[in-house]
Design a binder for these strands. Structure first.
Length: 701
DNA sequence: GGCAGGGTACTATAGACAGCATGTC
DNA sequence: CTATAGTACCCTGCC
């Protein structure tokens, strides 16, 4: 199918042709056949980089009215905003917590790009534009299975559809085990495919060699074995009708079960029995294997991503690769010396300096402790081929697009609470899916590092294994309370019956029936009444209606969780009766809510924070002996102390040093504090308490 | 006695969304 | 619990 044949107006068709898109990828063609251009609901469960954006554009451009594009990350929202803004004659608006590109009212736009929380918030605050939508595209719908954020996605989508039954819904998902359930929920046609524009092979590295799922075996430390099964030298990047395009369809991921569960086939294509530099099989630890896997690809002119478990390990691996002189083996454009300077310019923290040093050696690391400036430098230097390898925690797999020739997953387990857990298959697949850069690499390679004991597990679980099914988490009491309050506060529901009606259209209800929630909703309502968020108003003879109290209304509008609203209100009341109310007081209140991210409290620090809490007890709203979770409260005190020092003028460098947090972590704490303080101010006004320390703290943040 | 090197016990561990006012045609 | 890197600390052995 060609772009010319699509029901697009001339300027759009021109635009795509200019971008080199002539022939549609098979999943795109399938989406068109399913009716994306005719207003039909479509769920596309296809790999990343197989052309999802184009499907979204088709839906939005052919829709009979304004469109909404919902995505999970602010960074992705920005990326999409730019993509859509490049379309001729399309007015695009963006709406995320931190970014507002146009300043115009969202109502005037042809397309709005927003995070799901922002859409939820817009609905709660009565924004009118949501009712005029003709089309909603939801990116990464499989996140509906995520705790906390999943429920807001499904409730938001259900509400949008309820208020506007005619709206077209196009949902884009990673490959999951039950895409048909999502399609069924949305009354949508399902397009399912594992076609990719660049072939991907996945392997497991044990000792000195890698066994790939296509049956080939490659020695590690060989200058990277050649010769795989596919011959497509022709031009994997050509989207042109002429070239190898269409017939690549079944050559590639075609059959989903091409993978042989039993491990490597008998047909080894070993690079010739141990190359000259072949690494010794024995006594290689995972890091050495990972480093060799990276070095091989780099020596061959390709770039790598290496995924590890923790932040420090990402940094350590990057430094090690830098010391090994990794980049010297690569004909990279130029080592990222400028990027190094840029990274150093962001701040003078240890993290920043380490990153700068790595970048000047053509290596980088990436994790959530980096500030967004750092991350942007790393991402763009990598895209410009100034960096040979990024060592990263799983953040990178879910974020903006940074494809590499080879992906090395060194660690497949993660510390969770008190034990090591295997990573979900879906997550590992997303890491692996970053392999293969269209136009630059003949194929992508993903390698999981293991040993004799784990080999079979890795093959079964990740190489040949199916990703998990998406399951709703709406039944979680905390999520339910939030959305029940929202339904009442917006006036969509006045009885428990009507609340169930709001949830009728959710993914959860499809699985369990809305009735499955009845008991849980009743509990949530009771909780909200007890918390002073909701009131039962006995209006009629026998019945009552549910009404949000002013506090409940403000809580919902401010988009904080009910528990947060409750904690803030009680904190404010206590503060009003205190002699010594300071900025520390209000920080303690907002940090002691579930909406503030807690800060790790090390053993060493505990005693020190305890002393701090004691000596400042008259400024804190919580008496030590009456905390239900002392440990958690101490963490809040630590966060509050950091914020208080921050507004007192302590620098990032000093705070990072003193409290062992990443610079990016500090940024995110500050950002949340701004938001929670404004919520606190609004709540203070609704309950009629004046706490001057709130505006003080706000202005100094 | 002093110090280097090695063994050992202990500590720590991924990620990231949201409010609102304001001015302008 | 199913792990492992980094580190503070102690012990040992050598000078």
């Amino acid at each position: 199918m060609r772009v010319r044949e699509l029901p697009l107006s001339a300027p759009y068709a021109e635009h795509f042709l200019e971008q080199g898109i002539r022939e549609l990828y098979p999943p795109q063609a399938a989406a068109v056949d399913a009716g994306v251009c005719e207003g039909e609901n479509v769920v596309a469960a296809i790999p990343t980089a197989s052309g999802k954006t184009f499907i979204a554009e088709l839906a939005l451009l052919t829709a009979n009215g304004p469109g909404l594009y919902v995505c999970p990350l602010r960074a992705l929202a920005r990326e999409k905003y730019e993509t859509f803004a490049a379309l001729p004659g399309v007015d695009v608006g963006i709406s995320t917590g931190d970014f507002d590109a146009t300043g115009e009212a969202l109502a005037g736009n042809d397309v709005v790009v927003a995070t799901s929380e922002k859409v939820d918030s817009a609905i709660r605050n009565g924004a009118s534009w949501v009712d005029e939508l003709a089309c909603v595209v939801v990116d990464e719908v499989h996140l509906l299975g995520a705790e906390r954020r999943g429920p807001t996605l499904e409730v938001t989508l259900a509400t949008l559809r309820r208020r506007n039954p005619a709206v077209q819904v196009v949902a884009l998902s990673a490959t999951v085990d039950n895409p048909e359930a999502i399609a069924d929920w949305l009354d949508a046609a399902l397009v399912e495919s594992d076609w990719r524009p660049v072939d991907l092979r996945t392997g497991v590295a044990v000792g000195g060699e890698v066994e790939f799922d296509d049956g080939t075996t490659v020695g590690i430390g060989d200058a990277h074995g050649k010769a795989t099964t596919d011959g497509g030298e022709g031009g994997p990047n050509e989207v042109d009708g002429g070239g190898g395009g269409p017939n690549e369809v079944d050559g590639g991921g075609g059959g989903p079960n091409e993978v042989d569960g039993g491990g490597g086939g008998p047909n080894e294509v070993d690079g010739g029995g141990g190359g000259p530099n072949e690494v010794d099989d024995e006594d290689l630890d995972d890091t050495e294997i990972a480093a060799a896997l990276v070095a091989d690809t780099v020596a061959d002119g390709g770039q790598c991503l290496a995924f590890v478990r923790s932040r420090t390990e990402a940094v350590t691996l990057a430094q090690r690769l830098a010391d090994d002189g990794l980049a010297e083996r690569m004909d990279i454009e130029s080592v990222a010396a400028d990027a190094g300077d840029e990274a150093a310019d962001v701040d003078g923290t240890v993290t920043g300096r380490q990153l700068a040093d790595c970048l000047r050696s053509g290596v980088a690391f990436h994790h959530a402790g980096l500030r967004s400036g750092h991350r942007a430098v790393v991402e763009s230097a990598f895209r410009d081929r100034e960096v040979a390898c990024i060592c990263a925690t799983p953040t990178l797999a879910a974020g903006v697009n940074v494809p590499a020739r080879r992906v090395v997953v060194r660690d497949q387990k993660r510390y969770a609470g008190s034990a090591m857990e295997w990573l979900p298959t879906l997550e590992v697949h997303q890491m692996c899916g970053r392999a293969g850069r269209p136009g630059l690499d003949p194929h992508g390679e993903a390698v999981l590092v293991g040993d004799d004991d784990t080999r079979e597990t890795l093959v079964n679980r990740y190489v040949g294994g199916e990703p998990e099914a998406v399951e709703s988490t709406l039944a979680d009491p905390a999520s339910l309370r939030t959305h029940v309050l929202s339904a009442i506060a917006t006036g969509f529901a006045e009885t428990e019956e009507e609340i169930l009606g709001v949830f009728e259209g959710t993914f959860y209800a499809r699985e369990a029936g809305a009735g499955g929630l009845a008991d849980a909703v009743a509990v949530a309502v009771d909780d909200l009444v007890a918390a002073g968020m909701v009131r039962r108003e006995t209006g009629g003879v026998e019945d009552y209606r549910l009404v949000a109290t002013p506090v409940g209304e403000t809580t919902s509008k401010q988009y904080v969780r009910p528990e947060t609203g409750e904690r803030i209100v009680s904190g404010l009341r206590t503060a009003a009766g205190m002699l010594n109310t300071t900025t520390l007081t209000v920080f303690e209140v907002i940090c002691d809510t579930p909406d503030m991210q807690d800060t790790y409290l090390g053993n060493e620090e505990r005693a020190e924070i305890y002393r701090f809490a004691r000596s400042n007890a008259e400024q804190l709203t919580t008496a030590m002996h009456e905390t239900d979770d002392f440990e958690e409260w101490l963490e809040s005190v630590k966060t509050a102390r950091i914020l208080d020092e921050w507004i007192g003028g302590t620098t990032v460098e000093e705070l990072v040093e003193a409290y062992r947090i990443g610079p990016g972590d500090l940024d995110s704490r500050v950002e949340r504090a701004e938001w929670l303080l404004s919520a606190a101010e609004a709540l203070a006004e609704t309950v009629g308490v004046a706490v001057p320390a709130i505006p003080q703290a706000r202005s100094r943040l």
